[in-house]
Computed example of a mutant assay.
Amino acid sequence: MRIHEWPSAERPREKLLAHGAGSLSDAELLALILGSGLRGHDAVGTARQLLAEHGPLRELLEQSPAKLMRMRGIGTARACTLKSALELAARCQLAELERGTALTDPEAAGRYFAQRLRGLPHEVFAAMFLNNRHRVIGFEEMFQGTLSGAEVHPREVLRRALQRNAAAVIVGHNHPSGNAEPSREDREVTQRLKQALALVEIRLLDHFVVGDGKPVSMAARGWL
């Protein structure tokens, strides 16, 4: 039976319109993006198959475009659509942070770093710049590295902070291995950054390390 033959209350699109996107399952949300299913399967059935073979949802969506394109039921156009949807969500989250509300919840920054950096195949070091009221000025991916590390230049972070007239900075990087435990090198570069920024009275508020689980906050560990 095709989706349009389902009872109205069970169709993903009608459920979303009636009850909001939060009422849909992962498979139903994915089906709306796919639009149609494999031959002999509806979009929801195809979405369920993709999640069973390549899921859960986060692991599926964090695959590279090249890997998504090779999955049966996705292909080039849908891989681009999925990645575009993720980027829209990330930019929407940053826009929320940039609306002028002070960043009083440290975990909100951690969640944003996780959304931007988790799942990348190489290390990326990024910085979030804030004004003197801890309102977000901007977010930048500063340095890219390899599977095992990225070279961080505190002078460049300081330069960008001064250009943006930032009063505070939050930094973060990912561990492609999935293990978010900070290394000795991570702690050392955190201290170098803190010292460099302090020379011009810019505060380093936190350094998040992103892995498979909850991002690790160095401030919460007492390392700042």
Rank of each mutant, 00 (worst) to 15 (best):
S183H: 07
K194H: 05
L162V: 13
R99W: 11
R160W: 10
H207V: 04
P106G: 07
R116G: 08
E107N: 08
Q93I: 08
F139R: 07
A168Q: 02
R91D: 15
N179W: 13
E96D: 10
S183C: 12
R184V: 07
E188A: 15
M128I: 04
V189L: 06
N165P: 14
L117H: 06
L117I: 03
R111W: 13
V152D: 15
A109H: 03
G213P: 04
V124G: 01
A114C: 04
C92V: 10
F143W: 10
G172A: 12
R99A: 11
A196W: 08
F139P: 05
A126D: 02
D186R: 05
A108S: 09
N179T: 08
Q144G: 10
E188S: 15
G211K: 12
Q163H: 14
R192L: 14
L158V: 10
A167E: 05
A127I: 03
A126I: 00
N179F: 13
E140Q: 14
T101N: 15
V216M: 01
L130C: 01
A150S: 08
E140L: 10
A161I: 01
E96G: 05
R111E: 15
I170Q: 00
R99P: 09
E140S: 14
A109Y: 06
G213N: 07
F129D: 04
R187V: 04
E96Q: 09
L147V: 12
N131E: 06
G213V: 04
G211P: 12
N165G: 15
P154V: 06
L204P: 00
G149M: 07
T190S: 01
G119K: 09
Q195V: 02
I202K: 04
V200I: 07
L94F: 10
V216L: 03
L130G: 00
E181Y: 15
L199F: 03
R99N: 12
R155K: 11
G138M: 11
L130H: 01
E123P: 02
R160D: 15
P121L: 07
R116D: 03
V157C: 14
T101G: 11
R160L: 15
G100I: 14
M128C: 14
R91S: 15
N132Q: 15
V136L: 13
V169D: 00
N179C: 13
T104A: 12
D105N: 12
L120Y: 07
V210F: 00
H173K: 02
K214W: 09
H153R: 09
V209K: 05
D105F: 10
